[in-house]
Design a protein around this nucleic acid. Sequence first.
DNA 1: AAGTGGTCTAGACCACTGC
DNA 2: CAGTGGTCTAGACCACTTA
Lengths: 257, 257
Amino acid sequence: MPGKQTPESRQQFAFQRIAAELRAMILDGTLQAGQKAPSESTLVKEHGVSKMTARNALVSLRDEGLLESQHGRGFFVRSFEPIRRNVTKRLAEELWGGGHSMWSLDVVDRDLRPINEEPATVEVPASFATLMGLEPGALVCQRARVYEVDGVPVMAATSYIPLDLAQGTPIMQVDTGAGGLYARLADIGHKPRKFREELKSQMPSPEIAQKLRMTSGSPSPVIHIVRTAADEKGRVVEINDMVLVASRYVLEYDYTT
Amino acid sequence: MPGKQTPESRQQFAFQRIAAELRAMILDGTLQAGQKAPSESTLVKEHGVSKMTARNALVSLRDEGLLESQHGRGFFVRSFEPIRRNVTKRLAEELWGGGHSMWSLDVVDRDLRPINEEPATVEVPASFATLMGLEPGALVCQRARVYEVDGVPVMAATSYIPLDLAQGTPIMQVDTGAGGLYARLADIGHKPRKFREELKSQMPSPEIAQKLRMTSGSPSPVIHIVRTAADEKGRVVEINDMVLVASRYVLEYDYTT
DNA sequence: AAGTGGTCTAGACCACTGC
DNA sequence: CAGTGGTCTAGACCACTTA
């Protein structure tokens, strides 16, 4: 019957064999972080395979997160220095008014730089309308930004705030001031208190890949998070639609029972 | 020359053009969930490209999560029916003693079936030794299992429990009984109360791909979660090392401030 | 200009599926 | 058996980086 598995029957393809060899070199330190991996043409010569096969090996290691590629330069061993994102700490109430925007807490010895678009008044995206308790077509304040580390985008985030809350406040301005958006919501009596984050991971669509400047053909997963924030009374005061370059992040959630 | 790029046009490759066309058909409902996408050879004929290019388009849509491939059958539009995993609810204390294993709460109208390996006594993996406060080489109880939905693996999880806690309890047996592992830890006065989940997403290594029966060359991201569970006194009583097939899951974290 | 990654062609063989 | 996905070859051209 099909489905019977002979334990050692798994076929080992050439690109997997080459990838395994390079993977071992990376894991045992022969190839250190930042070092250049053998080029496609080198692997072609050394292993007697075609370029596509050599490339397949390198790309699979890139997808695994062990290598990164730079067009015209080569493949390099990736230094895994993730950005640690801990929402449990980050959203702790005592941190909100401290003069730092929440995201600055992500930095941890890094320069995580937000690049804000001008806030805009837009129709609420259809998929968020019911989440926010709004009619389809209702107007909301949209705040979009891209966060960069060392000039490289690592996250794109778009917030949606009900227009009646945002209007006439610094929420409609590029700079929301000390404490950020959540401090301004607190100022007007709608401090966010209840949060839900829904999270999935997948390959980026071309639009998202472009926004994060993930070069085409250099696919690596993104983490898609939709955070719903509600105030004490349960009114949804913000939806934050975030797309993180997965290879740059470790997410941390702490909780007790 | 098909595929030739005009200098002025944005770098739009042939495989991206074909992928965009199919993506639009999926999103507007022309191609419905479960339906068969055009085969590689069909795309070759219809678009006048080589097989590798046609295949590249299909694979990129698979990576995006819109298609899934079945060897010898074709590419099919994926029905996005994720498994919802909510640890905040799932770990709520009142649910632990209720005669259901925690994981059964993941099911939500599905058959999420755990396949347990025999518990084993092993040396603690080096990367977990310090997390658990153990010397390298110390012995722990290892419980490995794979969860399936409709006969398809969706998660592999391995738990490590300090041997002095596990020894002589049902934790060392395949079936831990009502309430599962956490109920047994509670029985012996080490009920888990403090949790940390660290999460990243990447492409699976070949070993993990094999364990989850993700066919080689059918890469799609996995979510890697390491959960540390400590009892009231702060002693780490379990490390759970989980690998989820990303395309099958939506993770949900709820919290308040 | 040379080296490199990214895309592409026009074939080929194999493994798997379904008839 | 034909159709399909997965791997592979031996070339090619382009864009990018570095010298």
